[in-house]
Nucleic acid binder design. Structure first.
Lengths: 178, 178
DNA sequence: CTTTTATTTCTGTTTTTACAGAAAAGTCTG
DNA sequence: CAGACTTTTCTGTAAAAACAGAAATAAAAG
């Protein structure tokens, strides 16, 4: 099969996204695959992704599985095609919500659990009062931020902006583009 | 010098924090050093940190420099002490704001710049209309989220909760602890 | 059921990152 | 400014992560 050959702008986007991914603890290839599907705006099969990105087929398979486990990518079947095809949402806000939900579940919630266990552990009595207080503060903070996130993710970002009274200049700049 | 010997709960906190750091693209030792200073609630010198965490002195030096560059840790001098001592804020919300500000500056802003360059590049004409649209959407989203973050970081989280109308149950649960 | 095509898992290699220890540089004190 | 103390930088090593290619498995077609 002929590689898709990314055009220069798309290539820059995909590479930058990969770079950002690795700074946030996401495998570079995983981020690239997602960026590619996002930009392509149509379902692609694993082989095409492989050749477009110039990475190993196995690598793409693993990345797609990971993206699916985060609900960022889903399988679709095209009529007359045997291969699985993969697509992602074109809605940035929806993608953001999925990412936040995923990280919360995989990282924030376990942290809150760990802190609760620390505070429930009898050994907490051996720690200084200040230490205990700071652990409590941290847990409280995480709980607040979690419910805040829940709340925020219900809105569209524009609504949020309004609610919080983001400065008129910025709001206008954004509205003008719509 | 005698190592501080972390007590079990503090140790768990510090180790968990290090683990979380690495999942978010922060060096494990850097995260551990910060967690330790936070829990200790008093200035510590590099030697004490080294022995408490059981890592190399050089490693601590590098981590402290990094934390200082993020404004998360500052040097203080104790009277009668020659060594530099290091401390961090005990205010979780303040720490969070510093972290967000840092990541924004180091990662979000450059991404927005990159996207603007993509859109300003004449080569954008070679891309499909849909691709261009999605890059624009992404940039717009980043801009919105950035100003949203600016706005949010002005408040204390409790105020935010109220503004957004977080459910009474949760608010109460939080208020009760205060 | 055999062949072809597609996908996943496994294994070894490469690359990157983290790290320790040593050396160097800097700082303070008397 | 001599000596001791402190911090940073440098260099090689170790650990971890990413990755490619091969092998194995699974699915579909004829």
């Amino acid at each position: 099969m002929r590689p898709m050959e990314l055009k220069p702008i798309a290539e820059r986007f995909v590479l930058h996204w990969g770079e950002m991914g690795s700074r946030w603890g996401v495998n570079r290839t995983v981020a690239q695959v997602h960026a590619l599907l996002y930009l392509a705006g149509r379902p692609m099969d694993a082989e095409e992704i492989t050749e477009t990105l110039g990475v190993a087929r196995s690598n793409v398979s693993t990345s797609l599985k990971e993206l699916q486990s985060w609900s960022l990518v889903r399988v679709v079947h095209l009529k007359g095609e045997r291969r699985d095809h993969f697509e992602t949402s074109a809605d940035v806000w929806e993608l953001f919500k999925l990412i936040v939900a995923g990280r919360r579940q995989r990282e924030i919630d376990p942290t809150a659990t760990a802190l609760r266990e620390c505070l429930a552990n009898p050994a907490i009595a051996d720690e200084e009062a200040g230490t205990r207080q700071r652990i409590e503060d941290t847990l409280k903070f995480i709980e607040i931020m979690s419910s805040l996130a829940d709340e925020m993710l219900r809105y569209k970002p524009e609504t949020l902006m309004k609610t919080l009274g983001v400065s008129a200049r910025i709001s206008q700049a954004i509205r003008r583009k719509e």
